[in-house]
Design a protein around this nucleic acid. Structure first.
Length: 121
DNA sequence: TTTCTCACA
DNA sequence: TGTGAGAA
């Protein structure tokens, strides 16, 4: 699984210990078994990580996702979960706005360096 | 090659 | 928030 998603073995196990990942059981010898949903989860985790979300935040979002995907949820609870998901959308959009602003700074900086370089010829 | 645990940053 | 090392 670590190889599939491009994480170290230690990291994948650490995420399990941190409650972000559930194994689909073990072999008789104790080896971890992973299902396809583990790939999904790890992709979400990787993206959130790169955006600077904490493990706790990942846990939070993943649990909402899980519950929403489970069956037999009362409509009222469903509404709550949808609402929670919307707050995550907002948080992600905030990250996006911050990064865009940073990209703008980087762009200006590079342009400035180019003009410096050109002038110094 | 895996697992777990303890230490370390 | 991870990683390294040792032992089983």
């Amino acid at each position: 699984m670590a190889e599939r998603v491009g994480l170290s073995l230690r990291t994948v196990r650490y995420y399990e210990e941190a409650g972000l990942l559930t194994t689909a059981g073990r072999t008789p010898g104790g080896f971890r078994l992973y299902g396809d949903e583990s790939v999904d989860r790890l992709m979400v985790i990787k993206k959130m990580k790169s955006l600077g979300f904490t493990l706790e935040e990942m846990r939070s979002l993943l649990s909402v996702r899980d519950e929403l995907a489970s069956s037999g949820i009362p409509d009222e609870r469903r509404g709550e979960l949808r609402e929670l998901l919307r707050t995550w959308v907002v948080l992600a959009e905030e990250k996006l706005a911050t990064l865009r602003a940073q990209a703008g700074v980087a762009e200006d900086f590079v342009i400035g360096l180019h003009t410096d370089a050109d002038r110094s010829v």
